[in-house]
Design a binder for these strands. Structure first.
Lengths: 247, 247
DNA sequence: GGCGCGATATTTGTCGGACTATTCTAGGGT
DNA sequence: ACCCTAGAATAGTCCGACAAATATCGCGCC
């Protein structure tokens, strides 16, 4: 297993300069600092302000354009695209969203997606999982149980579990949603951690999902996952509604 | 309306040179011409072969990297990423997939995604659609009914309908799946057109979905959409299994 | 003989500047 | 009032050089 040293959100993407510029601009856009329709300063000035070469700035813009965040045209300049063109399910875009605190609405929408996708995925996984995947799920849950969600290792194990369920569907397009699901899972935990008194043991729900998948029972797996997500959503909502009590 | 000379998949993206290079390489990758793990020829030689400047080639690579298709590192070069890192739901990637004929497996997986997402979306749409969206759905179906799926206008209307349903969920992440859903919808029709004798009138199914959404009945909308997708899948599967009878 | 460690070569990354293509705009002509 | 042309602003493309990272190989040490 790898180091997981960085809290992600800019890990691989920002090792090179063009990546970090893309991240900086991306965060500025998804956080609303640059509204859709806004025109970015032109390449010459912008690269000068950022103290990078124009080539680097341009490559950063290409990255953002590839993710639907901006559109460039001669004379007009580069402008922020309408929100509905944004590739919200792209892992980087999602990471940028979570770099500045995401809005409650966005989080709810992500949960809604989870609620749609994960129960169905669990059902498919119950039909198609192979032994290795089953073993990975079990191992993840064991780690999660011992490490608990208070540790990064435990949270990673949680994500691993949900990830493996998606993988076990043998559906490649579906699996690409793992980053989105993973983001939702991560933030569930973060919000819950802020209100430790609300902490509910998540293991029973997880084991029920696992058992159903292991037993090859699609309907049971779907229901169990539905319950799991519902409860997680309730906890998260409660944490959001409750007054902040962190530092 | 524009020429529609190209079957899309390169419309907006390939107006600039870097875009068309990205598309060319992207197609070569998703079609299996470059396998995951393969190392692309280095920037100097590659840009020379393609008769473009190194800057343009690099920008093209940035685009592919942003979509998860490749990864670049000094000394090692640029190599095709593992399939599970590909952003299969990105509109461009999807378009590249359909530029060369997609595999039957991939199509089936896309359908499975549709089967998961669209019924749930229809249910949400029944609860949340506003009048304007409802009107757009009705208008799309009217056009579809008159133009039929034999014309591009009819097919566009079909996609519009499904698109508006997704939009009416008021769930932004969900809406970004419209390009994926749209791709599946488009290819349903293409396959069916190859076997015109199988043509089944798709309008009753669509109107039932519409009526349920209009009436604000989530469960009914979900069931109607489920039926619609199921029937479309059956038709498509039949067309795939049947012997080819085009030129 | 094995193992670490540093030199080296290869490749991407970054830089700066020049020229081109596109397209919006404004002004002048019809 | 309209069209059309000229100009200006901006992204797009090209070029050539140097910097940084890193896999690989060979040397020397243990």
């Amino acid at each position: 297993m790898s180091k997981a040293k960085e809290a992600d959100g800019g890990g691989a993407a920002s090792r090179r300069i063009h990546g970090s510029i893309a991240r900086k601009l991306g965060v500025a856009i998804v956080s609303g600092q640059h509204q859709p329709g806004d025109v970015l300063t032109n390449e010459i000035d912008a690269s000068e302000q950022l103290q990078v070469s124009r080539s680097v700035y341009r490559e950063a813009i290409r990255i953002l354009a590839a993710k639907g965040l901006v559109e460039s045209r001669p004379k007009t300049g580069t402008r922020v695209s309408a929100r509905n063109r944004w590739q919200l399910l792209d892992p980087d875009v999602l990471a940028w969203f979570f770099e500045s605190e995401p809005s409650e609405d966005f989080l709810r929408e992500l949960y809604e997606l989870r609620m749609i996708v994960e129960p169905a995925a669990a059902a498919l996984a119950a039909q198609r999982r192979d032994d290795a995947q089953l073993e990975r799920m079990r191992a993840a849950l064991v780690v999660m149980q011992h490490a608990t969600l208070a540790s990064e290792a435990g949270r990673a194990a949680d994500r691993d579990f949900h990830d493996t369920v998606l993988e076990a569907t043998s559906n490649a397009p579906l699996f690409t949603l793992s980053s989105s699901i993973g983001a939702a899972v991560r933030w569930t935990t973060i919000f819950k951690q802020r209100h430790s008194e609300l902490a509910r043991d998540p293991m029973p729900d997880h084991w029920k999902v696992f058992d159903a998948i292991a037993a090859g029972r699609p309907d049971q797996a779907r229901e169990a996952m539905e319950r799991l997500v519902t409860l997680a959503l309730e906890d998260t909502r409660a944490s959001i509604d409750a007054p902040e009590d962190r530092v």
